[in-house]
Amino acid sequence: MLSSTSKSFFSLSIFSDFRFIYGIYFLLILFATIRIVGWEGSNNYSIFYYSLYHLLEVKSLYALYPAQYEDHYHYAPAFAAIFAPIFALPYSVGLFFWQLLFAGVWVYAIQKLPITNQQKVFAYWFGLHELFTSIVNSQTNPLITALSIFAFISFEKKQPFWAAFFIMIGFNIKIYSLVAAGLFILYPKKGVFIASMILWSVVLGLLPLLLTSPAKLLWQYELWIRELFIKTDSDKWLNISIHRLIHLSISPNIATASIIGIGVVLFCTVYIHRQRYSDYNFRILLLASILVFQVVFNPVAESPAYIIAVTGVLCWWFVCPKSSLDWILLLSCFILTVMSPSDIFPATIRMNFVVPYSLKALPCVLIWFRILYLMHFPQPTVHQQNLDLD
């Protein structure tokens, strides 16, 4: 439950009116797009945009093209085909629809979660700045977040075919979104889900054949696999994740694979509680764990990715006991994770402490361990109604 102060704030009609909230989100998207198109430009969107043309022109998706953008393209070849309708538009028009689509799909995902309207309002205001951080960087992270939520909702509606679809779409954008497949263990029709995963992996994997030849597509996939192995420990001191926290506080020599391996083992320990699979709180805590895990254990996680983790924090918050510890964790997440990149956060603290010590990641890491604890040792809490899924 929210505190009385939070209740009184969010009970004000204008702040709890979804039309007002959606209007604020739309204005922020419009502002971000105008700023990007008119002044700053978007290196990320340029990487996405030109991928379609490189695919059509039979050029390597993974080579450097300094005249068009900096850095590399890191996504599956299917990514360029999936979003071809947007990339085929004029650059500025496509960028606007890209921003609108990705912010809108996150807003829609929160609206479809089986939580109360009051909780949705809280989620929209809590996640506003974090979503903006991702949008101004033209990132895919809001969509990745939404796809995990859509997979969860599909499982809840006993639709493993569509759960597999959403998970495989996410995989072809960012491979770590495959973690959402961990939900299937809690639900029936596991065989249907596995068969659907195979089907959608083939369908989406071959989708670029609409734009290129089989031989050239195979070549692109070979390049993609090679690219995945390049970007591991190279960003050890640039990422914002548990990896950097461990390298700073314990030893820089601890291997990335070891940290991920320990994380996977800890993540999987909750599956021993088979008797709790029917408990809604347990299932949404697993969704929270998946969303946070995708970011904090990603060895190349950047600040704009934290819309995924913050959404996981919100899922945890709605079913946690609301103890003093939970409140401290939530507030630390809002201050260090959500607000630290903003202009209202003291720049001296950000540059001397938050950035050097990767403190943006710390609250989410601690909350992930809190989620595991609650899944192993459930605490008394207000019953979360399993609301109908439309």
Rank of each mutant, 00 (worst) to 15 (best):
P346H: 01
S241W: 05
I262A: 15
I259Y: 11
S258I: 15
W106I: 11
F171C: 04
Y62F: 08
D279F: 03
F369C: 02
I185S: 02
C364V: 08
R19V: 10
I344T: 06
S154E: 13
Y65M: 07
L314H: 05
T33K: 01
F161G: 10
D17F: 00
V121W: 01
N253Q: 13
P378S: 05
F97V: 01
A164T: 06
L95G: 01
F126P: 01
I240D: 07
Y49W: 07
F83A: 04
F171G: 00
M168E: 14
D233G: 14
W162A: 13
I86E: 07
Y357Q: 04
L286I: 12
G127S: 11
I344V: 13
G312P: 08
L329N: 06
N239G: 12
N137F: 08
W200L: 02
G127N: 10
T337K: 07
V270L: 02
I198P: 00
S46C: 00
R350F: 11
F126D: 05
G38S: 09
A288L: 06
P85M: 13
F166W: 15
S148Y: 02
D390G: 04
L131S: 09
S201W: 02
Y53W: 07
P341H: 04
K112L: 15
Q118Y: 09
D235Y: 15
E130W: 06
Q99K: 04
L178I: 08
V338G: 02
T133Y: 05
Y69A: 09
G312N: 09
Q275F: 01
F297P: 08
L329M: 09
Y91F: 12
T269K: 03
G263C: 10
F79G: 02
P66R: 09
